[in-house]
Write a protein that binds this DNA or RNA. Structure first.
Length: 212
DNA sequence: CACCAGGCAAGTA
DNA sequence: TACTTGCATGGT
Protein backbone atom coordinates (compact mmCIF):
# COMPACT_ATOMS: atom_id res chain seq x y z
CA UNK A 1 0.00 0.00 0.00
CA UNK A 2 2.85 2.41 0.79
CA UNK A 3 4.47 1.50 -2.50
CA UNK A 4 1.43 2.67 -4.44
CA UNK A 5 1.41 5.90 -2.45
CA UNK A 6 4.99 6.77 -3.35
CA UNK A 7 4.32 5.89 -6.97
CA UNK A 8 1.37 8.28 -7.07
CA UNK A 9 3.21 10.99 -5.17
CA UNK A 10 6.15 10.79 -7.54
CA UNK A 11 3.90 11.04 -10.57
CA UNK A 12 1.35 13.67 -9.50
CA UNK A 13 3.16 15.50 -6.71
CA UNK A 14 1.53 16.73 -3.47
CA UNK A 15 -2.15 17.60 -3.90
CA UNK A 16 -2.62 19.68 -0.75
CA UNK A 17 -6.25 18.89 -0.18
CA UNK A 18 -8.84 19.97 1.03
CA UNK A 19 -9.37 23.44 -0.52
CA UNK A 20 -11.15 25.41 2.22
CA UNK A 21 -10.64 28.37 4.55
CA UNK A 22 -11.94 26.71 7.69
CA UNK A 23 -12.76 23.28 9.16
CA UNK A 24 -16.45 24.12 8.99
CA UNK A 25 -16.17 24.86 5.30
CA UNK A 26 -14.63 21.42 4.85
CA UNK A 27 -17.64 19.85 6.57
CA UNK A 28 -20.06 21.74 4.34
CA UNK A 29 -18.08 20.71 1.28
CA UNK A 30 -18.10 17.09 2.40
CA UNK A 31 -21.89 17.05 2.36
CA UNK A 32 -22.24 19.06 -0.84
CA UNK A 33 -19.85 16.89 -2.82
CA UNK A 34 -21.85 13.71 -2.27
CA UNK A 35 -22.10 12.13 -5.73
CA UNK A 36 -21.38 15.55 -7.23
CA UNK A 37 -18.54 17.09 -9.24
CA UNK A 38 -16.40 19.37 -7.09
CA UNK A 39 -16.71 22.14 -9.66
CA UNK A 40 -20.40 22.42 -8.84
CA UNK A 41 -19.67 22.43 -5.13
CA UNK A 42 -17.31 25.38 -5.54
CA UNK A 43 -20.11 27.59 -6.82
CA UNK A 44 -22.40 26.54 -4.00
CA UNK A 45 -19.74 27.31 -1.40
CA UNK A 46 -19.02 30.65 -3.08
CA UNK A 47 -22.72 31.48 -2.74
CA UNK A 48 -22.66 30.54 0.94
CA UNK A 49 -19.59 32.72 1.48
CA UNK A 50 -21.14 35.71 -0.26
CA UNK A 51 -24.23 35.29 1.86
CA UNK A 52 -22.00 35.22 4.94
CA UNK A 53 -23.35 31.92 6.23
CA UNK A 54 -20.18 29.83 6.33
CA UNK A 55 -20.35 29.34 10.07
CA UNK A 56 -22.67 27.11 12.12
CA UNK A 57 -24.90 29.81 13.64
CA UNK A 58 -25.39 31.82 10.48
CA UNK A 59 -26.09 28.72 8.42
CA UNK A 60 -28.67 27.53 10.92
CA UNK A 61 -30.35 30.93 10.97
CA UNK A 62 -31.21 31.07 7.27
CA UNK A 63 -34.46 29.57 6.06
CA UNK A 64 -34.50 26.23 4.30
CA UNK A 65 -35.67 27.86 1.10
CA UNK A 66 -32.85 30.38 1.06
CA UNK A 67 -30.35 27.67 1.87
CA UNK A 68 -31.69 25.54 -0.95
CA UNK A 69 -31.26 28.35 -3.44
CA UNK A 70 -27.70 29.05 -2.30
CA UNK A 71 -26.58 25.45 -2.74
CA UNK A 72 -28.64 24.71 -5.84
CA UNK A 73 -25.61 24.46 -8.16
CA UNK A 74 -24.37 21.46 -6.16
CA UNK A 75 -27.42 19.41 -7.08
CA UNK A 76 -29.72 17.34 -4.81
CA UNK A 77 -30.27 20.73 -3.20
CA UNK A 78 -33.33 19.82 -1.15
CA UNK A 79 -31.86 16.76 0.53
CA UNK A 80 -28.50 18.45 0.94
CA UNK A 81 -30.05 21.51 2.58
CA UNK A 82 -31.71 19.18 5.08
CA UNK A 83 -28.43 17.33 5.61
CA UNK A 84 -26.53 20.56 6.26
CA UNK A 85 -29.20 21.50 8.76
CA UNK A 86 -28.83 18.19 10.56
CA UNK A 87 -25.07 18.58 10.71
CA UNK A 88 -25.21 22.17 11.92
CA UNK A 89 -27.88 21.36 14.47
CA UNK A 90 -25.59 18.68 15.87
CA UNK A 91 -22.62 21.05 16.12
CA UNK A 92 -24.76 23.66 17.87
CA UNK A 93 -26.43 21.26 20.30
CA UNK A 94 -23.42 19.17 21.16
CA UNK A 95 -20.59 21.72 20.95
CA UNK A 96 -22.28 25.10 21.10
CA UNK A 97 -21.24 25.74 17.53
CA UNK A 98 -17.56 25.59 18.46
CA UNK A 99 -15.73 23.39 15.97
CA UNK A 100 -12.50 23.76 17.95
CA UNK A 101 -14.19 22.20 20.94
CA UNK A 102 -15.50 19.42 18.76
CA UNK A 103 -12.01 18.75 17.40
CA UNK A 104 -10.75 17.91 20.89
CA UNK A 105 -12.98 14.86 21.18
CA UNK A 106 -11.53 11.44 20.36
CA UNK A 107 -11.96 10.36 16.75
CA UNK A 108 -13.82 7.14 17.51
CA UNK A 109 -16.45 9.09 19.43
CA UNK A 110 -16.84 11.72 16.73
CA UNK A 111 -17.21 9.05 14.07
CA UNK A 112 -20.02 7.41 16.00
CA UNK A 113 -21.76 10.75 16.47
CA UNK A 114 -21.34 11.80 12.83
CA UNK A 115 -22.75 8.50 11.57
CA UNK A 116 -25.84 9.01 13.72
CA UNK A 117 -26.61 12.24 11.82
CA UNK A 118 -29.13 11.81 9.03
CA UNK A 119 -27.36 12.31 5.71
CA UNK A 120 -23.86 11.51 6.88
CA UNK A 121 -22.57 8.11 5.86
CA UNK A 122 -19.15 6.54 6.22
CA UNK A 123 -17.32 8.44 3.50
CA UNK A 124 -18.70 11.83 4.52
CA UNK A 125 -17.95 11.10 8.17
CA UNK A 126 -14.38 10.08 7.40
CA UNK A 127 -13.86 13.08 5.12
CA UNK A 128 -14.91 15.36 7.95
CA UNK A 129 -12.79 13.51 10.49
CA UNK A 130 -9.68 13.55 8.32
CA UNK A 131 -9.82 16.88 6.49
CA UNK A 132 -11.71 19.06 8.95
CA UNK A 133 -10.72 17.61 12.32
CA UNK A 134 -7.32 16.03 11.60
CA UNK A 135 -8.32 12.59 12.83
CA UNK A 136 -6.52 9.61 11.20
CA UNK A 137 -9.40 7.89 9.37
CA UNK A 138 -8.79 6.75 5.80
CA UNK A 139 -11.40 7.92 3.28
CA UNK A 140 -12.72 5.31 0.86
CA UNK A 141 -14.55 6.63 -2.18
CA UNK A 142 -15.70 5.17 -5.50
CA UNK A 143 -12.33 5.89 -7.14
CA UNK A 144 -10.50 4.09 -4.35
CA UNK A 145 -12.72 1.05 -4.80
CA UNK A 146 -12.40 1.18 -8.58
CA UNK A 147 -8.62 1.51 -8.59
CA UNK A 148 -8.11 -1.27 -6.04
CA UNK A 149 -10.43 -3.51 -8.02
CA UNK A 150 -8.45 -2.94 -11.19
CA UNK A 151 -5.26 -3.56 -9.31
CA UNK A 152 -6.66 -6.92 -8.29
CA UNK A 153 -6.23 -6.00 -4.64
CA UNK A 154 -9.94 -6.45 -3.91
CA UNK A 155 -12.84 -8.09 -5.71
CA UNK A 156 -14.96 -4.96 -5.67
CA UNK A 157 -18.01 -5.75 -3.53
CA UNK A 158 -16.32 -5.55 -0.17
CA UNK A 159 -17.99 -3.36 2.44
CA UNK A 160 -16.55 0.08 3.13
CA UNK A 161 -15.16 -0.95 6.50
CA UNK A 162 -13.14 -3.76 4.99
CA UNK A 163 -11.45 -1.53 2.41
CA UNK A 164 -10.77 1.11 5.02
CA UNK A 165 -9.19 -1.49 7.27
CA UNK A 166 -6.96 -2.61 4.42
CA UNK A 167 -5.39 0.84 4.34
CA UNK A 168 -5.40 1.58 8.05
CA UNK A 169 -3.84 -1.73 9.04
CA UNK A 170 -1.04 -1.47 6.50
CA UNK A 171 -0.22 2.22 6.93
CA UNK A 172 0.98 4.26 9.90
CA UNK A 173 -1.84 6.30 11.47
CA UNK A 174 -0.56 9.52 9.92
CA UNK A 175 -3.09 12.26 9.14
CA UNK A 176 -0.97 13.91 6.47
CA UNK A 177 -0.30 10.58 4.80
CA UNK A 178 -4.01 9.74 4.74
CA UNK A 179 -4.92 13.15 3.34
CA UNK A 180 -2.37 12.99 0.59
CA UNK A 181 -3.04 9.36 -0.29
CA UNK A 182 -6.79 9.80 -0.71
CA UNK A 183 -6.28 12.97 -2.75
CA UNK A 184 -3.84 11.16 -5.02
CA UNK A 185 -6.24 8.25 -5.55
CA UNK A 186 -8.96 10.71 -6.55
CA UNK A 187 -6.58 12.49 -8.92
CA UNK A 188 -5.63 9.21 -10.57
CA UNK A 189 -9.25 8.17 -10.79
CA UNK A 190 -10.44 11.46 -12.25
CA UNK A 191 -7.79 11.54 -14.92
CA UNK A 192 -7.37 7.94 -15.96
CA UNK A 193 -9.92 5.56 -14.52
CA UNK A 194 -13.20 7.15 -15.53
CA UNK A 195 -16.19 4.91 -16.17
CA UNK A 196 -15.78 1.18 -16.45
CA UNK A 197 -13.36 0.88 -19.35
CA UNK A 198 -11.37 -2.29 -18.68
CA UNK A 199 -8.14 -0.80 -19.98
CA UNK A 200 -6.57 2.57 -19.32
CA UNK A 201 -3.41 2.63 -21.39
CA UNK A 202 -2.90 6.28 -20.53
CA UNK A 203 -2.71 5.40 -16.87
CA UNK A 204 0.79 6.17 -15.57
CA UNK A 205 0.62 3.11 -13.37
CA UNK A 206 -0.33 0.78 -16.18
CA UNK A 207 3.23 -0.30 -16.91
CA UNK A 208 4.51 -0.04 -13.38
CA UNK A 209 1.93 -1.95 -11.42
CA UNK A 210 -0.53 -3.08 -14.07
CA UNK A 211 -3.40 -0.69 -13.70
CA UNK A 212 -5.58 -2.26 -16.35
C1' DC B 1 -28.29 12.47 -27.12
C1' DA B 2 -26.21 9.54 -23.07
C1' DC B 3 -23.34 9.39 -19.19
C1' DC B 4 -21.00 10.87 -15.12
C1' DA B 5 -19.75 13.35 -10.58
C1' DG B 6 -14.92 13.31 -4.12
C1' DG B 7 -23.08 9.40 -1.49
C1' DC B 8 -26.97 8.48 1.38
C1' DA B 9 -31.31 6.59 2.86
C1' DA B 10 -35.35 3.94 2.20
C1' DG B 11 -37.54 0.13 0.18
C1' DT B 12 -37.54 -4.69 -1.25
C1' DA B 13 -36.29 -9.71 -1.11
C1' DT C 1 -26.77 -9.03 3.49
C1' DA C 2 -27.42 -7.48 -1.35
C1' DC C 3 -29.63 -5.03 -4.88
C1' DT C 4 -32.69 -0.99 -6.57
C1' DT C 5 -34.38 3.74 -6.71
C1' DG C 6 -34.82 8.84 -5.81
C1' DC C 7 -32.44 12.85 -5.22
C1' DA C 8 -30.69 17.28 -9.37
C1' DT C 9 -27.29 20.37 -11.27
C1' DG C 10 -23.66 21.05 -14.65
C1' DG C 11 -19.92 19.34 -17.60
C1' DT C 12 -18.22 16.18 -21.49
Amino acid sequence: MLHLFYLLLKHFGPQHWWPAQSPFEVMVGAVLTQNTAWKNVEQAIANLREAGVLDPRALFSVSSQVLEELIRPAGFYRVKAARLRSLVEYILDRYGGEVELMAREPGWLLRKELLSIHGIGEETADSILLYALDKPFFVVDTYTRRILTRQGVIKGREPYSEIQRLFMESLPADVELYKEYHALLVELGKRYCKTRSPLCLECPLYLEVGCG
